[in-house]
Design a protein around this nucleic acid. Structure first.
Length: 412
DNA sequence: AAGTCGTGGAT
DNA sequence: TATCCAAGACT
């Protein structure tokens, strides 16, 4: 698209400034941007999401779930969550383990721990009520400036701006901001711009806030923005300059490093040992296979590697090797003290009811499938059927042994 | 104040 | 396939 008018750096005369769309954004009290956006949201925006309304609990819960997570992904988790915990009181009364189990698979598990702590703080400090205004919402753990503003705008119509990824992109284009929006200095400027665009009437805040999100998600998208249907295209400096699709500028990202991880599949009479991970770090508080940072405990013998999983995260790639262990003696063995106090031995189907990280969830699901297939009562084993893993690599020099283990067989 | 934290959708 | 990144917060 070609620039239709001069803007920003090209402006040299007073007339250029008058012609620049950026000028009309600052054009006094008409608040044309907000008026247009609110009108557009009410006609074309999303109005049927299950958390929309003024229930503070549902709005808060959804905003936390939606942090760094797309709407499509959140929908089934939100439904399960409100079915199990219809109120903040119900959530506060639940054990953390149950919250983590419902959160399992959604990622960023600190959100679940903070959510649980926040629910308890909420009912203790605002009994039969809720935080009033962004200043109070932000006091809940897991609720930062943008999330607090979204809740306050939706529930109470407070005139406070949000600044999530969508809004950053919209503002970078609207004002032709070329700097990295995630740099601290740029963020401050974007917050100011966001504040300056708010509607004057607080009754418009819910539709306006939803409109900013909808505009970013549906029209002002990262790739191929739909400027042809944008309600504020004539106010957009980047469109004026013909660079809307190129903003925000993406910064170069370092290549993602790889990290090796070793898990132990300690199998005992059709069940497998799980340990709770420390609250800090990745998968904090979740149940997982014992991670073999040091030598595995005694009384077990290695029975081959049963899986190699590749798990990609934003900042690095995990290569997980899962080694199967069986008791040395036919009788049950004591859980190793090295695993800490919280260790449980569960059938795979039962383990799936706990909060577990996604790669382990897949592993357990395959084990359940395998049990269902091979279901002989006498020879119950947690075999893993060949070809059922998402990612399974041949392990050099042990193909036959691996194959046999993958079938869940015993000695040949 | 950069690093860390998950998973899946979209291109 | 590889890459970016999503209704960010916390340390």
């Amino acid at each position: 698209m070609k620039p239709k008018r001069k803007c920003n750096a090209e402006m040299t005369t007073d007339q250029d400034f008058v012609d620049c769309p950026k000028n009309s954004l600052w054009g006094g009290s008409d608040a044309i941007f907000a008026v247009r956006l609110v009108d557009w949201q009410r006609r074309c925006g999303r109005r049927d999401l299950p958390w929309q309304g003024n229930d503070p609990y549902r709005v808060w819960l959804s905003e936390v779930m939606l942090q760094q997570t797309q709407v499509r992904t959140v929908l089934p988790y939100f439904a399960r969550f409100v079915a199990r915990f219809p109120t903040v009181e119900a959530l506060a009364a639940a054990p953390l383990d149950e919250v983590l189990a419902l959160w399992s698979g959604l990622g960023y598990y600190a959100r679940a721990r903070h959510l649980h702590a926040a629910a308890r703080l909420w009912v203790a400090r605002w009994p039969r009520s809720c935080p009033r205004g962004a200043q109070e919402w932000v006091q809940l753990p897991g609720v930062g400036r943008s999330t607090a503003a979204a809740i306050a705008a939706f529930v109470q119509g407070e005139r406070v701006p949000i600044l999530d990824g969508n809004v950053q992109r919209v503002l970078c284009r609207l004002f032709a901001v070329e700097e990295d929006p995630r740099a601290a200095a740029t963020a401050g400027r974007l917050w100011d711009l966001a504040q300056s665009l708010l509607p004057h009437d607080s009754d418009d805040m819910p539709a306006y806030t939803q409109g900013m999100m909808d505009l970013g998600a549906l029209v002002c998208t990262r790739a191929r923005p739909r400027c042809d249907v944008c309600p504020v295209v004539d106010l957009c400096a980047a469109h004026c300059l013909g660079i809307a699709a190129e903003l925000p500028r993406k910064r170069a990202r370092a290549p993602v490093p790889e990290q090796d991880l070793r898990w132990g599949w300690y199998e005992e009479d059709g069940a497998v040992w799980l340990v709770r991970r420390a609250p800090q770090g990745i998968w904090g508080g979740l149940w997982c296979l014992p991670q073999e940072d040091q030598a595995p405990p005694g009384a077990w013998r290695a029975a081959g590697e049963i899986a190699r999983l590749t798990h990609r995260l934003t900042h690095f790639t995990l290569k997980i090797t899962v080694t199967r262990y069986l008791p040395q003696a036919p009788r049950a063995v004591e859980p190793a003290a090295a695993w800490g106090e919280e260790a449980r031995c569960l059938a795979p189907a039962d383990a799936l009811a706990l909060g577990v990280p996604q790669p382990l969830r897949r592993l357990l699901e395959r084990a359940v499938d395998s049990l269902a297939e091979s279901g002989n009562e006498g020879e119950r084993r947690i075999g893993v059927a060949k070809g059922k893993f998402e990612v399974l690599e041949r392990i050099d020099g042990h193909d036959k042994e691996i194959e046999r283990l993958l079938r869940g067989g015993g000695k040949p």
